[in-house]
Structure formats: structure tokens, C-alpha cells
Write a protein that binds this DNA or RNA. Structure first.
Lengths: 125, 125
DNA sequence: TACAGTGTACTATTTGTATAGTACAATAGT
DNA sequence: ACTATTGTACTATACAAATAGTACACTGTA
């Protein structure tokens, strides 16, 4: 279970914020395989946004195999994480990290600061 | 001097990303008083975005007295230094790292793997 | 003066986000 | 079978962000 929250002034689209929170919730173990997510209608009411916005987030995550939806039943956390070949994964990790560092360096953050933050986010519940 | 970078998938408007990077650059001392920024045209070419988008960022910062523009000459860092509250910096770091983690977790990478990769990339340069 | 480089201003257009409303389809429980 | 609940699909609308193109104004320099 997750407490969804939206930041309307961040500039990040609502549906992307929802996507992020679900993916992050899975990675931290707050959302477990098979667990049911709020219905599109209930989450829309809770966040005071439109039904279609929630639907868009769920749909995109379903395409990415992160979620599994059953019409008439609900939306659930997918079974297995996508498997990638080790070499490809390594290259992917490198490119993502590299891009990440270039962005953080624009803000002047040091690698040490970043690592501290990452560890903190990982431990957070 | 700063290496500007845009994250097109973050959902944050380009002009806001530019504003942020300039503000943080000043706050961290990477941009000093009186220093000339890239021209609107050159930065637009560099970031592969439109001239008007860069102009919008510069204009907003000029209103905030962060930048000083002289038509026909260029755009420069204003006299009064920008001070970014520690909480804002922390929040920025947190949001960037959070988004980063949500992406990496999608590929199944652990925080430990990521940290190893970041340290390796840091040592490379 | 002439010119190159700078920022500015404006209109038009496209794209993405979000809302609103409605209708339909699949499922579970009774 | 019926009903409630779930996800899906579609059209229309509004707004912001970004692009594209063009023209203009100011500055420094040759």
C-alpha cells in the first residue's frame, strides 16, 4: 500500500508522478507482487484529478509490464521484473548513470552527496 | 561556466530546467558575478531547442534580478548573489535522485550496483 | 557608415497535459 | 439473470509548453 501524493507546482505531469510513485514503491518493497492498486476511480477521487489521468498512468505501466490489469477486476502489481541480458543491462546502467551525473553536476551536487541521498532514499519507508 | 543539460523525460519544462541550473550554478559558485552566459542563439543550438525557450528562461531570471541583459551585448550574471536555501537544495537533490531511482529500479538495478557505477564514472574523469 | 552579433517582439502552429462527459465491456457476487 | 464495480474508449475542450519563422532594436567594431 502506498500514500499517493501529487505536487501540482513541480511541473511534472500528474500521470508521471503516479508512475514514479508506483515504480518507486515497488523498488522499496512497499508494493508487492500481486498487490491490488487503488481503482482508477478511487485514486482519481483521492488525488482530486480526473479518472483519465490515473488511467493513463496505469496504461503506460501496463505496457511496460510493471502492472497487470484485468477489466472488471482491478489493477495489480506485475509478477516478474523485465529480464535483460547482463551485457545490455550493464550498458544500460552505465548510460543511465552517466546521464544522471551530467544532470546533477549542472546543479553542483557532488557524487558523495548523491550517494548519501540514494542510501537514505533506499532505507526510507 | 556551466555545462547545460536537459532531461526531456522528466516532465519539467525546458525553460524551468535552464532557470534552475543557472540559479544553482550561481549559488554553488560555478557562475560568478558579471560572467557572460551563452547567447540565446548559441545555447539554443547547443541544447537543440528553440531560441524563444532560452529567451524565456533568461527573461524570467532578469525579472528576478538574477541576470542582467544588455541588448546587443549579451546576458550576464547579476550583481547580487543568489542564495538558495539548504532545504530547497535538499529537496532538489531528493527529487532528482528519486526520479533516478524509479528509473533504475525499473531495470532491476540495486542501489549498491548503482553506487559502484557512479563511483567508477566519477573516477574516470 | 556598414556590418555582425546580440537581445526582443510578435504571430501562428504543433504537441502534451488535464479536464469533462458519456458510453461500453468485462468481471465478481448475489 | 441482475447488479455493482472494474477498466476501456471516445469526443470535445482548455491551457501551457515548445517550436517555427520573421522582423526589429541595440551595441561594438572595423
Amino acid at each position: 500500500m502506498i500514500d499517493f501524493t501529487l505536487d501540482p507546482v513541480s511541473g511534472v505531469p500528474f500521470y508521471k508522478q503516479i508512475i514514479d510513485q508506483i515504480r518507486f514503491g515497488i523498488s522499496r518493497g512497499n508494493l508487492k507482487t500481486g498487490e491490488q492498486l487503488p481503482t482508477v476511480r478511487s485514486l482519481a477521487v483521492q488525488l482530486q484529478i480526473n479518472l483519465n489521468t490515473v488511467s493513463k498512468a496505469y496504461k503506460e505501466l501496463e505496457i511496460q509490464r510493471v502492472l497487470e490489469t484485468q477489466q472488471g477486476t482491478g489493477t495489480f502489481i506485475g509478477a516478474e521484473p523485465v529480464r535483460i541480458a547482463p551485457e545490455e543491462a550493464r550498458e544500460k546502467l552505465r548510460s543511465i548513470c552517466s546521464e544522471f551525473l551530467s544532470i546533477t553536476s549542472c546543479y553542483g551536487f557532488t557524487v558523495e552527496e548523491i550517494i548519501v541521498e540514494l542510501k537514505m532514499l533506499k532505507g526510507k519507508k
